[in-house]
Design a protein around this nucleic acid. Structure first.
Length: 567
RNA sequence: CGGAGUGUAGCGCAGUCUGGUAGCGCACCUGGUUUGGGACCAGGGGGUCGAAGGUUCGAGUCCUUUCACUCCGACCA
């Protein structure tokens, strides 16, 4: 491709809303163009990268025995109502009506559609297992789209679904997909980590995320320094935690504690380590049909609530904050809430760490009063793991120190079981002629997000540095002075020769100055550049690798061999 | 959803307080010079000032309504 004919609107200026390297360089390099909140157009260069990434994904999946299909983007709501997700998925689901007032949704993920496809076509165990996938647009009406392609509303995703006659076979495929995903991310040149994860809105049990490691990642992951344990903070576990400080021995009593509505103040007031205080976080848990209830989450004062774990503990769709008015209406006092003697209609969940805890201090559910000498030994209650693992906690597997790191969720695989096949009545006949629901797995890769992830991991202050398998072109030929006939002639000759060899080559034949073209090369991030410039007079040209920007002077008649050697 | 802010040329912005000819930089077009690190000179094109309504002789500017976009937050009760 000749740059003079390529639609490639590069810019010196950083868009004012872009903060992440990937967002800045993808826009400045003319890969994408913003068209609305969380909506992007792909320009020729961006489309090429997208296609290359997509090709890697497709090749590995096809090699792993998966079959590509393409499902409708607009989905009848009836399927979503059948599965029960129409309400559960919440506001991220964009709903729309056609001219006849029929309701549809724009697919944010396609379990329903794929189950529907398979239930109509697969009737026998003999046709199993089967693994179908598509690489298609998705739409999620995010609360707050940001960071360019990282969190957009419309995005390209590979979503795969496998169907099995047994749990064991599904697990086998799950492991197989984990290996396949590792190959995909490795081929794309990404540094990543496979971690245990929460299953979120998709549901099911046993899920793993593929995290591309980057400081700008939106997810916090907990990793062990000594073993390969890794988990999303939403699902991380740790070894039991104790406290070295002596517990405050006291007999049960009600204590006047004015102006101590925070854990910190309470800790100061009683001169007690927060470990021995009970912290309450009150939330409103939302359920289907607009129902909701107030839940108090009780944990040690040294801990912090992990909202996803908390949400799972009460099987809610979502947890939202409460205003002081709402608390007052429910008979609760902010800053003085306790897990005992709660008003009617308020649910309490205890963190598992509180089981059999003694010598605790908690709120009295009464303004300006706390209770001391609380003893939970043998106390009957609902104990669940609802707190976040903290840095420095011990690894449950090996006892090593856990620490936080940041990751970009680029892939997620789930063991679904019969979560969707049951409500959607997707069944097959087994060897005994008995009807059984399909056992399913589901596997996703954020293809458009991968472009952002690659740049987050591979860039410098000048621009993008695409990896070998993701680059829009393999090499670019820069003609320093387009009016120099010798330079242009050699460039044209080289361009034709590389094309002949089937190499994706770019020829920068624009009537621009040298510096301008170099800046563009650095911004766009093609892995290799051949600079044909003034030292052609001495019979040599330059080879520049984008990663590191190292220059090498080579003989002009050796270009082809040298370039081929670098690819 | 809570808080803050912004909408003026393709992009980045000034002008709004104090109403009176629509501006600047980049980009773009024409001509010329220039060609190893985002050149220079000269000329030029491009605007329903987010939208609707109002006040006024006159509104980018004042008033009302509305839409869009962006940023911060949504764990310690």
């Amino acid at each position: 491709m000749r740059v003079s004919q390529l639609l490639i609107p590069t810019s010196k200026e950083t868009p004012n809303d872009a903060t992440l390297a990937s967002h800045i360089f993808l826009i400045r390099g003319g890969f994408i163009q913003g068209v609305g909140s969380g909506l992007y157009n792909y320009l020729p260069l961006g489309k090429r990268v997208l296609d290359r990434v997509r090709t890697v994904v497709k090749e590995e999946l096809d090699r792993a025995g998966c079959q590509e299909v393409s499902l409708g983007f607009v989905t009848p709501s009836s399927l979503w109502i059948e599965s029960g997700r129409f309400e559960k998925y919440g506001k991220e689901l964009l709903r729309l009506k056609d001219r006849k007032e029929n309701e549809f949704v724009l697919g944010p993920t396609h379990e329903e559609m794929m189950v529907n496809l398979v239930r109509q076509t697969v009737k026998s165990y003999k046709a199993l297992p089967i693994n179908l996938y598509q690489i298609n647009l998705k739409f999620r009406d995010e609360i707050r789209p940001r960071f360019g392609l990282m969190r957009s509303r419309e995005f390209l995703m590979k979503d795969g679904y496998s169907f099995h006659a047994s749990q064991e076979d599904m697990k086998r495929e799950f492991d197989h997909m984990e290996e396949t995903y590792k190959k995909i991310f490795t081929r794309l040149g990404l540094e990543f980590r496979v971690v245990e994860a929460d299953s979120g809105a998709i549901g099911g049990s046993g899920s793993k995320e593929f995290m591309v490691l980057a400081d700008s990642g939106e997810d916090t992951i907990v990793v062990c320094d000594d073993c390969d344990y890794g988990a999303n903070i939403e699902a991380a576990v740790r070894a039991e935690k104790t406290c070295d400080v002596e517990p405050p021995e006291a007999i049960y009593a009600r204590f006047h504690t004015p102006q101590t509505s925070t854990i910190e103040a309470l800790s100061d007031f009683f001169k007690v380590d927060p470990f021995y205080l009970i912290k309450i976080v009150a939330k409103r848990a939302l359920y289907d049909g607009g129902e909701s209830r107030i839940v108090l989450f009780a944990m040690r004062g040294s801990e912090t609530l992990q909202e996803v774990k908390a949400c799972n503990a009460v099987l809610a769709n979502e947890l939202v904050d409460l205003s002081e008015e709402e608390l007052a209406e429910a008979g609760l006092v902010a800053g003085y809430m306790g897990p005992t003697k709660v008003p009617e209609g308020v649910e309490v969940i205890f963190d598992a760490m509180l089981e059999d805890a003694t010598n605790m201090i908690c709120g009295a559910n009464e303004k300006d009063y706390h209770l001391v000498g609380i003893n939970l030994k043998g106390y009957e209650a609902n104990y669940k793991d609802i707190v976040a693992v903290q840095e420095g906690d011990s690894c449950r597997r090996c006892g090593g120190k856990l620490r936080y790191t940041k990751g970009i969720e680029a892939g997620h695989i789930f063991q679904l079981g019969t979560q969707y096949s049951k409500p959607l009545k997707a069944e097959f006949l087994d060897e005994k002629g008995k009807s059984q629901p399909f056992v399913m797995g589901t596997y996703g890769i954020g293809v458009s997000r991968l472009l952002a992830a690659i740049i987050e991991q591979h860039h410098d202050d000048k621009g993008c540095i695409w990896t070998k398998e993701s680059a829009p072109f393999a090499v670019t030929i820069i003609v320093s002075n387009i009016k120099d006939e010798a330079q242009l002639a050699l460039a044209e000759e080289t361009y034709a020769a590389l094309q002949e060899k089937g190499i994706e080559v770019l020829l920068d034949d624009r009537k621009e100055r040298f510096g301008f073209k170099m800046k563009d090369f650095e911004l766009i991030g093609v892995p290799l550049a051949v600079v044909i410039g003034k030292n052609l007079a001495e019979g040599s040209v330059e080879l520049i690798e984008r990663d590191g920007l190292e220059k090498r002077v080579i003989a002009a008649d050796k270009i082809l061999a040298e370039v081929m050697g670098c690819l």
